[in-house]
Amino acid sequence: MKKIIVFASGSGTNAENIIKYFSNIEIAKVVSIFTNNASAKVIDRAKNHQIPVEIFSKNELLERNVLQKIQKIDPDLIVLAGFLLKFPENIIEQYPNKIINIHPALLPKYGGKGMYGMHIHRAIVNNKEKETGISIHYVNENYDEGGIIFQANVALTDEDTPETVAEKIHELEQTHFPEIIHKILEDSNSKI
């Protein structure tokens, strides 16, 4: 069975969705949640599913501490699901094309440092975009610039607010993220 580690910084709805999805499929299992936020709701979600949690500081991420913990687990895939820190190069180098992220916009638009969550949704509404969506991509040394694996879009109207955009994005994330992870694990040598 393949092993997945999920990194998350906040509420953990995507992390929990991935946990639930793979609890019914024998191809893989979420074996650990890593978080940089000791008060993140993802911790409770993980504990509810008996998934071990690693809490670390930004310094521990940049040093070798987190890498060493990852190496002990020896994951087949590392999934960033609402993880807000820049992923360190020492981990990326050890796991090439084995680290993916979900971004709540259609990259390359609305990517980069500081572009996450409601910041993106507000910018999309302010710019009167006609569509938005999600991007699932490989992680490299730059924010949101790794190779795109999958995108899904949703139409917007003039009545959309940042909050309604967030709801539409959340729906796309919940539907597609676990399925794309599943496809990646089934065939780790090809892009979707």
Rank of each mutant, 00 (worst) to 15 (best):
N48E: 12
I169E: 09
R45V: 02
Y110M: 06
K2P: 08
S9R: 02
L156W: 07
G111N: 08
E129G: 08
S23H: 04
S11H: 12
I19P: 02
L80G: 05
N24Q: 12
N36Y: 04
N14S: 10
N59T: 14
I4Y: 11
N37Y: 13
D187C: 09
I148K: 05
A105T: 04
H121E: 10
N14Q: 06
L156D: 09
I169K: 11
N48A: 12
I19W: 01
K98W: 04
I169N: 10
S190R: 11
Y143I: 03
I70G: 09
I181E: 01
H170L: 15
G117S: 09
I99R: 10
G146H: 05
N101Y: 00
K113V: 14
E167M: 10
I33Q: 07
Y21F: 15
D44E: 15
E167Q: 14
T175V: 02
S39W: 01
I43Y: 06
E131Q: 15
D144K: 09
N140T: 09
R64G: 06
A81P: 05
Q174T: 13
G147T: 05
V53L: 13
E179Y: 00
P108L: 04
H103M: 02
I78L: 11
Q94H: 15
E173S: 03
D44M: 12
E129Q: 14
M115E: 02
F56A: 06
V139E: 11
I33M: 06
K86S: 13
A28Y: 00
E171H: 15
I184G: 01
K47I: 12
E26A: 00
K58P: 03
N48L: 11
V30G: 02
M118L: 13
P104R: 08
E141W: 04
D74T: 14
V53T: 13
K29A: 11
I5C: 09
L106R: 04
P178T: 08
Y138M: 07
N126A: 15
I148W: 01
G147Y: 00
T175Y: 03
K3I: 10
L67W: 11
H49A: 15
V42W: 12
L80S: 06
E60Y: 04
H182A: 00
R45Q: 01
V79P: 11
T35W: 08
I148E: 01
F87H: 04
F87I: 01
L185Y: 12
Y138H: 10
E159Y: 15
Y138R: 08
L107W: 03
E159R: 15
F34Q: 06
E129I: 08
R64H: 08
I99N: 05
D144G: 11
M1S: 13
S9Q: 05
G112E: 09
N36T: 01
E141H: 14
N17S: 15
T35M: 07
N101L: 01
E16W: 07
L84F: 08
N17G: 13
K2R: 12
L84R: 05
I148Y: 02
D44F: 13
I192D: 00
E145H: 09
F87Q: 01
H119W: 03
H182K: 11
H176A: 01
R122L: 05
I43S: 05
E141L: 09
E163D: 05
N189F: 09
P88N: 12
K41N: 15
E171C: 13
V6A: 03
Y21K: 07
S11N: 15
N17Y: 06
Y21S: 04
V30D: 01
R122E: 14
A152N: 00
L77F: 00
I70H: 13
S9D: 07
F83S: 06
I55C: 15
